[in-house]
Design a binder for these strands. Structure first.
Lengths: 337, 337
DNA sequence: AGTTACCATGAATACGTATTCAGCAGGAGT
DNA sequence: ACTCCTGCTGAATACGTATTCATGGTAACT
């Protein structure tokens, strides 16, 4: 590997001068700029980003700790985050959550000297938050939120649940199912709470919602469907806490021969791009924003990084959701199966 | 940030000893290991990965230059690559192709001192290959291949095209459409060539395939559908060069009111997970392997890295494809629309 | 006891770049 | 002629870690 020292020798100047040329310092004479540039070209020199980071203490790298890509929501956020970061001159080191071994990922990331961290897979009482705050590294959580606050960008999950409840109730349904993920995450917890409370308000009864708490794997969701559809008072309307869950659930329902929405209504959350596909036309609830949560998060994060430690203001954004009514929800059609 | 020097002072030893403890050297007495470990804990010390990389000349980081995530194929490969790399102890720096400004990405990556590069978005005559070979950095291309060879993992694209041709011809179709991407990439070129030659062999005629060369954007694919379906002899069978294209095409076709496969058959390539969904049941052609191309590529790449420069053997893998017949292809049903 | 061998340790150095600091040359001003 | 600036430059140093090298001490063996 060619170093700036070798470039210096080739150009007949000092390494300092090479470094100054590299950083577009104006304190270099035109002749030397020319000589150095030529030497760089001749030797095919590439500055060593690692060495630059060591001394400058900025790596121009951010870490993304994301939920898994089999959830299209995270596909969209990952794409937005990586691309936007690149636009702003940052590289992105990506990690995907893997059933709870997040601590080792956190350790790695904190060692890496990244300039910032954006993460989605946080539990409501995750110990990571204290670590993050202690580390002094700028960070933002998107999608999920921590009990203690911190920096986050989310949607109003409780409200999303309520909207689903109102929508499904107004269609005339009486038995409801909920399929979600772990309740120690703010998204699933908030959506469940909003949904059950919404249903209770409408029906003036509690216990009308059959809860399925899964690990969001395909198998677990399929199991939830089996269990739910085998019940005596089986639900005619299902609220899936994410579009990913809704889409997986639809797969199983279609396989079992149910028609949607004639036999069963299904409503998701996230308003993922795929939900608009004519093969789905999934009714869903999502933020009223043309930027997804990842994109909003990364913008805040980079602004935060570039503002410097002293000017870092807290980031706390909660977007109000809206209902996107499409074709997977409808009135009950009794006796159709 | 706490440095190893400060840990050394706290523990009453030299920085060398701290470093040795960090690297599990066996040449440290038990007492010193204990003292150092305790000091690390007390000061909440985290080794500086940047500094370690500078001296060790290994960053434990690989770069992934991937096609865009709106293509589910790349969703699956990205997921596999990042997760497998992590298992092997590598972090992944991710970049997504953005309409051809790849050169700036390459520059960044070559500066970054990554231990290896895995890339999918290579043109058949891409200048990057020479740069890669000159840089001495281990690399592997997956999905697409370069004219000059190099290290790659691909499927037999020509054969995939031929299989599609045979399948659609045997269903009785006579007018065919092809929707692909830029012909200067090996995938689209190979699949197109195989398809047209296959059709020509079967029909004993040339010119039976209506070619749509798009930039793979949703708009371009929709336009291709409009154009194709407006023709006098409009195709009754379409070969989409990727599942991503097939799925987007289906969206437009469904929107226009066509039934699949009664009005039009469609066959993709890649055998993406989503193709199996009961809302699609897309007939497609893919490798007969339980590991996707990204996963195969990253395995080879990391093996290559760890074998060392001297033992690096060329990687040239071409997987034979198979037909996965599902429900988007069928016999022609004349007069149905 | 004397020699050898080995082990654990610290001092010094290297990795490649950015930056501080001092110095030098030359021009402007008196 | 002398001082004062200004504008460039190179030497030296720092960043945090790994590693080499030399050393002092101790155990093993004659």
């Amino acid at each position: 590997m060619i170093s700036s020292k070798e470039v210096a020798k080739e150009a007949g100047v000092s390494q300092s001068t090479v470094s100054r040329v590299l950083n577009n310092s104006d304190k270099v004479s035109k002749e030397n700029v020319a000589k150095v540039t030529e030497a760089m070209r001749k030797l095919n020199y590439r500055p060593n980003a690692i060495a630059r980071s060591l001394v400058s203490k900025r790596s121009k790298t951010i870490a993304l700790i994301s939920g898994p890509l089999h959830n299209p929501f995270f596909v969209e956020t990952t794409s937005s985050i990586v691309n936007y970061a690149k636009e702003r001159g940052y590289n992105t080191n990506v990690f995907f959550e893997n059933n709870g071994d997040n601590m080792t990922v956190y350790e790695t990331v904190l060692s890496m000297q990244v300039d910032g961290i954006i993460l989605s897979s946080v539990f409501m009482d995750d110990p990571i938050l204290k670590e993050l705050q202690a580390s002094q590294i700028p960070y933002v959580m998107f999608n999920r939120k921590h009990n203690e606050g911190g920096n986050f960008v989310e949607i109003n999950n409780y409200e999303a649940g309520k909207m689903a409840a109102n929508h499904l109730y107004q269609l005339g349904h009486e038995n409801f199912g909920f399929i979600g993920g772990p309740m120690y995450t703010s998204t699933f917890y908030g959506r469940y709470l909003g949904f059950t409370e919404g249903i209770a308000e409408q029906t003036m009864e509690t216990g009308k919602v059959f809860l399925n708490e899964t690990d969001t794997s395909e198998e677990a969701i399929a199991d939830a469907i089996f269990k739910m559809m085998g019940r005596k008072n089986r639900p005619t309307a299902v609220f899936a806490a994410t579009d990913a869950i809704a889409i997986t659930a639809m797969d199983t329902l279609l396989e079992l021969g149910y028609r949607i929405p004639q036999d069963i209504s299904i409503c998701g959350v996230d308003n993922v791009r795929m939900a608009r596909h004519h093969a789905f036309e999934l009714t869903t609830i999502g933020a009223q924003s043309n930027k997804n949560l990842g994109r909003l998060g990364i913008e805040h994060l980079i602004n935060s990084i570039e503002a410097g430690k002293e000017n870092m203001s807290p980031i706390q954004v909660t977007l109000e959701p809206a209902l996107y009514q499409r074709k997977t929800t409808g009135p009950i059609k009794p006796g159709s199966v």
